[in-house]
């Protein structure tokens, strides 16, 4: 039993990253009908911004010899990284996607791939190939609860991921900006006629998605403190799978699919030899998509809405 519960905790932590990154994919896809393949690398940039912010804050604290507690640095790092990375997201939209808004979809898709490669190799050129050790902001404390090992880090990661998901869901469902985003997802062509500034909404969508990716990046740094320029690729692919599985544009769908992916990966490893993990996990997802082609919360495409 303890073994089973331990793996649930493991899966919740691992799923948190997929969920946060998947939401960014899903929002851009929902609102703009774009696959932003650079999103995994935006996550990587967020992690690096978090790394430099955290290192800077710690150096500052050491210099002024003020005792800033680690959790405060973590909160500040999260906020600053989310803020700065939203500009990275907006820059990606402005430079990469806006000029191509009327271009064929395939052109926009390869733009994402190219920006992703530019971000990876740009990082490699600027910062070099060596791995960065994310500073231990909150030293892990291990608690044993009924045969299950939980650390304070795990709790923070899972709570922050869930809180950000719910906050974003509220934003999209209950604010005017959110309504504008949903309207754009519903009909791209009519929305400008209603006086909604589509460029602003597009930028906002990228900014929110990238902010969440930065949060994922910082939390990832806390849990897996070895950063490298290519760390975003695999997470990006898998989060993309989660975004589609969740259903187009659905925030809760993307998040739950992200967690589901985490669960499938961890539990496949628990039951089968770990070598089979991705093979079995992604076969399961293929099966789910066969029976639910629109994902969990997606609505079928309507010919009258989309050209």
């Amino acid at each position: 039993m303890g073994y089973f519960l331990q793996n649930i905790v493991n899966a919740l932590q691992w799923g948190s990253f997929y969920a946060l990154v998947a939401i960014g994919y899903s929002m851009v896809y929902g609102v703009l009908m774009l696959f932003n393949f650079a999103h995994g690398d935006v996550f990587m940039v967020g992690a690096y911004i978090g790394f430099f912010t955290a290192s800077g804050l710690m150096a500052l604290a050491a210099m002024g010899s003020i005792a800033i507690p680690g959790w405060l640095i973590l909160i500040l790092t999260l906020i600053i990284a989310m803020f700065l990375n939203s500009f990275v997201g907006m820059a990606v939209e402005r430079i990469g996607y806006r000029p191509l808004r009327d271009a064929p979809r395939a052109s926009a898709a390869i733009t994402g791939l190219m920006i992703g490669i530019i971000l990876e190799t740009g990082n490699l050129a600027l910062l070099g190939a060596q791995r960065r050790a994310f500073p231990p902001l909150i030293p892990p404390t291990v608690y044993k609860v009924g045969g299950v090992y939980i650390t304070n880090q795990k709790i923070v990661i899972i709570v922050v991921a869930l809180a950000l998901t719910l906050a974003l869901h509220q934003f999209v469902q209950h604010t005017k900006w959110g309504m504008a985003m949903r309207a754009m997802a519903y009909d791209f062509l009519v929305v400008p006629l209603m006086g909604i500034p589509i460029n602003t909404i597009a930028a906002l969508t990228f900014a929110l998605g990238s902010a969440l990716a930065a949060a994922a990046g910082v939390l990832y740094g806390v849990a897996y403190p070895v950063l490298g320029p290519y760390m975003g690729i695999i997470i990006g692919w898998k989060a993309f799978v989660a975004a589609i599985l969740g259903g187009r544009g659905s925030i809760l769908g993307a998040a739950s699919a992200g967690f589901l992916l985490g669960f499938i990966e961890i539990f496949v490893t628990m039951i089968f030899p770990s070598t089979m993990r991705d093979f079995i996990a992604y076969t399961i997802i293929l099966l789910i998509l066969t029976f639910l082609p629109n994902g969990f919360f997606g609505e079928p495409y309507s010919a009258k809405l989309r050209l």
Binding site: N10, Q13, W14, I266, T269, M270, P273, R277, D278
Partner: peptide, 20 residues
């Protein structure tokens, strides 16, 4: 006798099995 694939960063499932 647990394995993973190049590029993985989360080993929690394997390590939980090793613990057990």
């Amino acid at each position: 006798y647990e394995s993973f694939t190049h590029g993985d960063t989360d080993f929690s499932a394997q390590l939980t099995a090793i613990n057990k």
